[in-house]
Simulated assay, not measured.
Amino acid sequence: MRHADYVARQSQSNSATSALTASWRRSLFKHGLDPADARRPERLTLEELSQRRQAMDPFLRVAAPQLDQLFNLVGLSGCNVMLTDADGVVLDQRVNGADAEQFRDWGLWQGTLWSEAVQGTNGIGTCLAEGRQVTIHRDEHFHTRNTGMSCMDAPIWGPDGRLLAALDVSSARAEQTERYNRLISAQVAQTARAIEAVFFRASFPDARIVVADDTADAAVLLAVDQDDLAIGATRAARRALGLEREGAIRPRPAADLLGRSDDLTGFDKAERAAVVRALARSDGNVSAAARALGIGRATLYRRMSRLGLAEKSG
């Protein structure tokens, strides 16, 4: 049976419930794609690509050394290392000259668009569509023309908790096995976590970065300011600590989030930190903060003035 016919039949089967089949169904029914379509992937103009790269420049600069390290590990085995934006546009890559022609012919090249909406099931697009690590091996691809490649991908989440990029390693070698793919996939995931952590640290240059949990699966990091308020959190930290899913987080005492003692002999003895924590817990209500500190409202106002702390407006 032809690959295109098999994909269409499985996509329409009520008994097929795998994650792969779900992606095929999205490709066929939601996006209206044809698995037999042999057209090459769309490619942005040089100006369009330049604009996207400029918008992501701080991230790309941080990620570049990690891409180099990953390519040093997998490049000799005929692999192409690529980094995309959240739309699936390839912004940066590492590839050996001997393999470049094959990858360019497949469209695995800077400026090409690999979203699931336009390419169907593929490593980059499906990783971004589902927000999780995926491996799409050869005939698991939606389009027949992509069945010669194996793609291992992991998502990268931004400091704001939103999906920022996908890290991809694709292979042009027909002899590459699924077992070897698993080894590469583990390295891709590790590199994606490293890029995410490095970019998070770079996004809060004046903050102290605290490891909020010990896990090998994700970067669970908090950015803590001089007053010991948590002002930033990675996606994994947001999930683990029940913080806002996306966007800026409401500053909270790091001691509260980390389950540490909040008295003056515990997390911080400084008077300023104690006042700031009380204000944060009361969401800026000076009266409530004063009661929590066991002092009068007027006294707290005097201390706030002396410490250079302004009352929260609105």
Rank of each mutant, 00 (worst) to 15 (best):
L113Q: 08
D99S: 14
W106V: 03
V95W: 03
A86R: 15
F71S: 10
L83F: 03
N96V: 02
F103T: 02
L108F: 14
W109P: 00
V74Q: 08
G88A: 09
M82E: 13
T84P: 00
D99L: 09
D87W: 05
S115P: 04
W106H: 11
G75Q: 06
L83D: 05
G88E: 06
M82T: 09
A98T: 10
A100Q: 03
E101A: 15
N80A: 04
V90S: 01
E101L: 13
W106Q: 10
A86G: 04
M82N: 13
L73P: 03
T84L: 10
A98K: 12
R104K: 12
F71G: 09
F71L: 09
R94H: 04
G97F: 04
T112C: 14
N72C: 09
F103R: 03
W114A: 04
T84A: 12
D85G: 08
W109R: 03
A86M: 02
R94L: 00
L73K: 15
F71T: 13
D87R: 15
L83Y: 03
D87C: 01
N80C: 12
D87G: 09
A86V: 05
T84K: 10
L91C: 01
Q69R: 15
G97S: 10
A98L: 13
W114T: 02
N96M: 14
M82L: 13
Q93M: 10
G78N: 11
L108G: 00
L70Q: 05
D92H: 04
V89I: 14
Q93T: 10
Q110W: 01
L108K: 04
G111V: 03
G111H: 06
L113K: 06
L113N: 10
V81E: 07
G75R: 13
N80F: 08
W106E: 08
G111S: 09
G88H: 06
S115M: 11
L108C: 07
G107D: 08
G107S: 11
A100C: 02
G75M: 12
S115Q: 12
D85S: 07
G78W: 11
C79P: 02
R94I: 00
G78E: 12
M82R: 11
L73A: 15
G107N: 08
G107F: 07
W109E: 05
W106G: 13
G88S: 06
V95C: 07
V89F: 12
F103W: 01
V81Y: 06
D92L: 02
N80E: 14
G78D: 12
S77H: 14
V74Y: 06
